[in-house]
Each structure stands twice: as structure tokens, then as C-alpha cells.
Design a protein around this nucleic acid. Structure first.
Length: 545
DNA sequence: CTAGGGTTAG
């Protein structure tokens, strides 16, 4: 009779080998529990001062958001070198503490450690705004760090994210470079595209020595952003090869076009392209999904949206798991709740997000402030955004706050903020104020707002109908007919507002002067049902004229 | 270690 082989306990040697293997990949460790074990073992083996282990340990700890422990490791090294300092800088950036990253930089210069090209590379990432990029740029000039192309390339990219002024500065760096590679050109092209300088971008694209797929995708995006879909499609067909980025760009471009006349054709084109992408066995990724879904949601392309949804489900939910961990998911959920009147739930989710260790970003705050239109914490969150999280408010945030004040009837405060904010008010802000004027019967203010709106959007019939409603609420019937006349003037020049939704491969249009072509009875029955439902719940309909 | 497509206010 044969006995089964005894199970051997792991020998000291194999355990040691396992430990060494784990140490090799230590800097990639994202599992906190595993890291804690390794952390203990490293200290026990007195390896925490090892010049190869210490930076890896700092990296891993920063990945697991354990900055206190990471600093602890750093502080125990008597003579840190540039490599170790770079690791700490990178760690701070990863944990969204750019100020601390700059502090490390100051300290290392103070203690006579020479920063290297990597130091500057990481610091460029920590920059927010033109001033800080300029500061690094000055160092790059002073120490002539142009020989490592990564440095000026990153500078171009960082400048490109600072608006129009930034793109100009990026161009200066670009022009001064004696040697350029494909990344240099691509960064500059994408910067120009972001600034809306399509002509210049195209010129650079045409003149560059070698174009890769990134170059083609960047210029493709330029045409899509400019709304020039036929030119974009020509580029899409002409480019030597296409990847998920090319497909995502062109599909969402087709899907989100605002031109109703062309919408139907383009929507079909978008759906057709989506099928073609799947036929080409290209795997759409999370960015593909996000961009196409948002474009189809904006334009009411239910079919395309469903297609994307099906692709996601077909992946066994793998993407859902991935998304669970992502900022966009929290942001989208908070915003979704806010949009649908669940302001309190949105704020509760915001708290949970923070508890789970996510640092809110500027998009999160758009959702949070939108949620506050139903409560009074908006101003508190607005200040907290800059003071506690170091996020400079953008026009969207001011827009939310103005909307919030307007809804609350604090119209004069809303106006004061509008005039004092560092941005030119846009259509969204003026129309949100117009709506606030309607809510609070502020006739005179409404006239002023309309005046501004007409300047920005001369052919917007919705504005005059809002004004007409305001006059009606005030009983000024003479002005009502006047406003109606204006609407008719605009209407004769331009097709009136159309709401479009696609169902089962068919497009349904709804206009102000409703002309139903399909299933009239079914639609009217639904409306009748809705009205009946409304009589049963406490609801006071507002009467539009 | 740098470059391309993404979430957002009416």
C-alpha cells in the first residue's frame, strides 16, 4: 500500500524566495493588506534603509494612500539622494498634494541635493496654472534641461492646459527646441486643438516629419470639436490605421451634433460605425463607453445608447467592477441624483465618497453644487472647494452658485456674483438667471437679462417665450403680445425648437406646434394618463402661455 | 518618465 506523499511545510529558503519575489514588484503593490505584511517584514529584516527597497516602499505606500507611513520611511534615510526625493515628490502628486511635492523640491535644493530631469518632469505634473508652469520653465531654461526631450515635451503639455495664454507659451517652448520628436509635435497639436486653433494645428500636422496614430487622432479630434464632421470623416478614412481612440472620437462626434437637420443621418452613421468597430474586433474601453453614452444621452439616441449598454453587459460586468473604483462613477452618480431632485442623497453620497478615500475633483463639485440648489449648503461647499481641496472655481461652479442664489430668490446677490466673478457670463448662466426671474416675477431684471442673452444668442426663441411668460405672470398682456411677435420673427427665419428621440430605429420629432406623424393616439393616451395621474397627487401645474 | 478619445452648471 502506498502512502500519499507528505505535505511539506514551506522551507525557510522558499519562503525567503517568495519574499524576494514580492520585493521585486513591491512598488506596484496596490493591496493594502499585503503591503502591511511586507512593510512589517521589511522592517524586521532591517531592509527599510536599503537604497533599492526604500523608494519602492514609498511608491507602494503612496499607491495605498498611506502617506504618513511613506514619509516615515523617507525620514529614516540619513542622506537621501535625488532618486529618493523624486519618489517622494511622485508620491505626493499621486495623492493630490502638489504643494507638498513643491515643498520637497525646495527642501532638496536647500540641502544641496541636485534635482535631475526626473524631478522637473514630476514637478511639471504638480503644476496647476500658468504661474507654476512658468516657474518650472525658468529652471529648465537656467539649467538647460532641453536635452532630455521628456522635459520640454511635458512643459508643452502642461502649458497647453492653461488656456490661450498657455498655448502661446507652449509655442515658445516648441519654437526654441533644437530637436523635436513625434511627442513634441503631438503635444503641441493637441494644445492648439484644445485652444480651438485648428488652422495652426493642421499646419503643424501637415509639416511634421513623421505622423503616428496619436497625431492623426489629435487632428481628427480637432475637426470633431470644430463640428466639421465631413472633414473629420475624411481624415478618419484617410488615416493609415485606426484604433479605439479614433473610433470613439468620430462616433461621439457624429452622435452629439446639435444640428437637428443633420442629426438623423449622423445618428444612423454613428450607430453604423459602432457596429463596424465591433466587427473590426476592436475592444471599446471605458473612455469609449463614457464618451458615446454621454453623446447619445445628449441627443436622445436611445438605440446607440442601448448598443453600448449591451457591449458593457457582454463583458461579464468587468467594466462595472472597474468603474466602481473610478472617480467618474462617483461624479456621474452624484450628478445623476442631483439632476433628479435627490439633492440630499447626492450630498450623502458625496460624504460616502470622501469616507472611502476619494479626493473630490472639480467635476465632483459641479454635482455637489447642483445638488445644493435644493438646500442651503451651496456657498459653504463653494468655499470649501478652494480652501479644503485647493480647487480653483471655474465658470461651471460660479454658474451653479448663481443658479442656486437665483432659485432661492436672492437675485441681487446672484447679480453681484455674476458681475464679480472672473469669467464672462455665458448663455447657460444668463438663461438660468432668466428662469430665476420668472420664478420670482422680477420683470425688470428679466428684461436686462434678456438683453444680454439676445447679444449672445440672437436666434433663441426660447428666451422670448420665457420673457413672454414673465409678462403674463405680471399681467402685462401688451408686452406678452410684443414678445410673441418677436418669437414669430425668429421662427420665420429658423426652424423652431425640436426635441428628437430615436426609438426602434425610428426618429420622433416634437415641435412647439406639435405635428405628430406616428402613433398619435398612443401619445395622446399617454398624455391623458399622465394628466389623470397628476390629479391624484398634490401638484399645481404651472401654466405656460 | 512626456503625446490622442471621457464624466460636469440651464
Amino acid at each position: 500500500m502506498q502512502l500519499p506523499a507528505p505535505i511539506r511545510a514551506p522551507t525557510f529558503l522558499s519562503r525567503r524566495r517568495l519574499f524576494e519575489q514580492k520585493l521585486a514588484d513591491l512598488h506596484k503593490c496596490t493591496d493594502l493588506n499585503q503591503l502591511k505584511q511586507l512593510h512589517a517584514l521589511i522592517y524586521k529584516s532591517n531592509l527599510h534603509k536599503d537604497p533599492f527597497i526604500a523608494p519602492k516602499l514609498i511608491s507602494a505606500l503612496s499607491l495605498c494612500q498611506q502617506m504618513t507611513l511613506a514619509i516615515n520611511v523617507f525620514d529614516q534615510i540619513q542622506n537621501p539622494n535625488a532618486f529618493l526625493c523624486n519618489t517622494l515628490i511622485k508620491a505626493y502628486i499621486r495623492n493630490s498634494e502638489p504643494d507638498k511635492a513643491f515643498e520637497v523640491f525646495r527642501e532638496m535644493r536647500w540641502s544641496g541635493i541636485f534635482p535631475d530631469n526626473y524631478t522637473y518632469l514630476f514637478l511639471i505634473k504638480a503644476c496647476s496654472g500658468l504661474q507654476s508652469v512658468k516657474m518650472i520653465h525658468a529652471h529648465v531654461e537656467k539649467y538647460n534641461l532641453y536635452s532630455d526631450l521628456f522635459v520640454p515635451n511635458s512643459l508643452i503639455d502642461a502649458y497647453s492646459k492653461c488656456g490661450l495664454m498657455g498655448v502661446k507659451a507652449a509655442k515658445v517652448v516648441f519654437d526654441v527646441m533644437e530637436e523635436r520628436d513625434v511627442v513634441t509635435y503631438n503635444s503641441m497639436i493637441s494644445g492648439l486643438v484644445k485652444a480651438g486653433e485648428l488652422t495652426q494645428a493642421k499646419k503643424l500636422f501637415d509639416g511634421m516629419p513623421h505622423r503616428d496614430r496619436v497625431s492623426w487622432n489629435a487632428i481628427l479630434d480637432g475637426y470633431v470639436k470644430a463640428g466639421e464632421m465631413s472633414a473629420a470623416f475624411q481624415i478618419f478614412e484617410k488615416m493609415p490605421s485606426r484604433d479605439v481612440v479614433s473610433w470613439s472620437t468620430v462616433i461621439s462626434g457624429y452622435a452629439k451634433t446639435g444640428d437637428i437637420e443633420m442629426a438623423k443621418g449622423l445618428a444612423k452613421e454613428a450607430a453604423r460605425l459602432y457596429d463596424r468597430m465591433e466587427e473590426a474586433r476592436l475592444k471599446p474601453d471605458d473612455a469609449t463607453f463614457v464618451s458615446i453614452l454621454s453623446a447619445s444621452a445628449e441627443s436622445g439616441l436611445l438605440g446607440l445608447g442601448k448598443k453600448v449598454h449591451q457591449s458593457i453587459l457582454r463583458r461579464h460586468g468587468a467594466y462595472l467592477v472597474q468603474w466602481k473604483e473610478k472617480m467618474v462613477t462617483w461624479n456621474a452618480m452624484i450628478h445623476g441624483l442631483a439632476m433628479h431632485g435627490h439633492g440630499r442623497k447626492a450630498l450623502q453620497l458625496f460624504d460616502r465618497m470622501k469616507q472611502e478615500g476619494f479626493a473630490p475633483d472639480k467635476v465632483t463639485f459641479v454635482g455637489v453644487l447642483a445638488a445644493c440648489s435644493q438646500c442651503n449648503d451651496g456657498i459653504h461647499h463653494f468655499y470649501s472647494m478652494e480652501n479644503d481641496y485647493g480647487i480653483a472655481p471655474e465658470i461651471e461652479h460660479y454658474g451653479c452658485l448663481i443658479d442656486l442664489l437665483g432659485r432661492g430668490g436672492r437675485l441681487s446677490e446672484a447679480f453681484r456674483l455674476l458681475h464679480n466673478m472672473p469669467f464672462e457670463p455665458n448663455v447657460v448662466i444668463w438663461s438660468s438667471l432668466l428662469r430665476a426671474c420668472r420664478m420670482h416675477n422680477a420683470v425688470q431684471l428679466a428684461e436686462e437679462v434678456l438683453h444680454q442673452l439676445v447679444k449672445l444668442e440672437p436666434a433663441g426663441p426660447g428666451n422670448f417665450s420665457m420673457l413672454s411668460n414673465i409678462y403674463a405672470a405680471a399681467g402685462d398682456w401688451g408686452s406678452v403680445s410684443n414678445a410673441r411677435l418677436q418669437i414669430r420673427n425668429i421662427d420665420s427665419k429658423r426652424p423652431s425648437g425640436v426635441s428628437l428621440i430615436e426609438l426602434n430605429d425610428e426618429f420622433h420629432e416634437f415641435t412647439v406646434m406639435i405635428q405628430l406623424t406616428l402613433n398619435q393616439t398612443e401619445i395622446y393616451q399617454t398624455i391623458k394618463g399622465l394628466n389623470q395621474h397628476l390629479t391624484k397627487i398634490p401638484y399645481a401645474p404651472s401654466i405656460a402661455i
